[in-house]
Design a protein around this nucleic acid. Sequence first.
DNA 1: TAGGAGTGCGCG
DNA 2: AAAGCGCGCACTCCTA
Length: 615
Amino acid sequence: MVNFLRTTEEVEAIVPNLEKKKILGVDTETTGLDPFVDKVLLLQIGDLEDQYVIDTQSAKIEPLRPILEGIKIPKVLHNANFDYKFIRSNFGICMENMIDTMLIEMVIRNGVKRSGFGLKHLMKDYFEQEISKEEQTSFIGHKGDFTEKQLEYARNDVIYPLRILEQQIPIAIKEELEFTIKLECQAVAAFADMEYNGILLDTARWKKLIREADKGKSAAKKKLDKIFQRFAPGDLFGFVSINYDSDQQLRDALRRLLKSERNFSEKQLEERLPDTSRETIVAIDHPVKDLILEYRTHQKVVSTYGRGFLKHVHKKTGRIHPNFRQLGAESGRVSCTRPNLQNIKAGSDFRNSFIAGKGRKMITADYSGCELRIIAECSQDPVFLRTFNDGGDLHSIVASTMFKKEVTKDKNKHLRKAAKGINFGLAYGMGAQGLSVIIGNDSKSDEENLREAEKMLDQYFKSYPTIKDFLDGSAEEGVKMGYSRTMGGRKRYYSLPPVPKRDEHESDDTFFEARKNRRRQLGAIQRKAKNTPIQGTSADMTKLAMVWIREEIKNQNLDAKLINTVHDEIVVECGEEIAEKTCEMVKEMMTKSGEVFIKSIPADVDASIEDHWTK
DNA sequence: TAGGAGTGCGCG
DNA sequence: AAAGCGCGCACTCCTA
């Protein structure tokens, strides 16, 4: 028998009982997935003893506000982001102190599995209980009375997360993941708020940029057609145009062109035009090179940032409400979809097209040199630490040391660029091969460039042995333990390849091949293990800053909204009269969060106040 | 015709 | 399979 409440009086009556609970499960059933359009039909709340299903069409949930908004009783939800947004849009209630069993599971299994985090999967995994989610869809477009089956289904969705949490807690403790889990659970509200708040796009300006790209694309295409015309098949009946978006067609066309105009042999063509990657195109010694690059730049704008992008402007709110995946990357980073607001062209009019509302301002704040500072902290390298403490330019210092020449942002720029390439590349486990591509000189042979790169790497690690020790240590630990950890304690598991056994193989050849393959896989893990503590700590830091910024907005009752985050950057929109104050607050929270992880040097936060998103 | 794999490229 | 980490999206090409 389900406790089904249909009046506000009945809801009022359960409050005293709920207030006595140490923990509460919460869930909703909605008519759809869009919080701005769809309705909450049922709200379920309770613990393992008592569960209440409330008909939110006939009863007000206002009496529950103190419980939901209060921090005293934690609310357990599976995928809290979803319910938070619906409860906010339908009832104007913003839940606090949420525990999200989906995020907890993702933290616990990070690197072990990529999907299967639904309630159904978890009930199977933890209890071998098969539950049906069929009833869920019965609420779409639902009207009128509910069946007993629907109510029973609704009630169970309060119980399941509570039971799952009981299983997860001992695992979390054993794996020492408390900090990460707490962080992620606190951050849910910040991400849900960001999605709910949305961001305003100056669509007229955006459309103008697309039109310009359209023109540029057509112009480039015309010029390309002229060049390729005579090498295209079907000449007899006129020119059959090449689809320059097709790597196959483009590659074949380029091969015909170079064969004819540069007298390349078949073998040369295969070597020099194996694909149509940027790297390959750049190496072509023919005016067609620049045209292709130009075409692609425009094509990218027209496609990725084109029409498909504008369809994400919400009809009702007029804003773009992206979908943040709080644990989108195994490193702990956030990813963003529909649309992806983390790959908007930087330093361009595209970014500037994201604007603050009327009478409002946009604050763009980011950690400068975040990952290098984390490397400095973890390695305790004396030069890195001193440079960051003195406010010096690390790339210049590193270049000066390595090349034994004076290097500044103006003097010997090319050496600074090389050092920058190393500084960043090494954080990803880059080798000499990769480095030679970055710092390579076209006038030298590949072989010479490789030698040069090897010498540079060698010199680098001789100058900064502590950096080498730190990175090698991370790689070794990853392979030895089977996981990496960030400074926030986040774990990322690796599936280690088994050692091949000779008797499992038919021949020496396949045996050696298997060994080679294993080494390759280990190499990949080592590179990930070098990078994960760095990238992941940066993610920890930014997430914690977001939690605190949201808290400050709430506590100070600021007219400000979290809008976006791009890995080491946070964007906030606020009333213009409090822009200065808000900007200082954002800086302060980010700095404070930086100090939690980086103790030896300051976390340098750049922030600006504009009418639009910057950088 | 929908969906997966492959390629290329935008961001940090 | 890969020798540079982490993403998402558009497009082509091919298959079920």
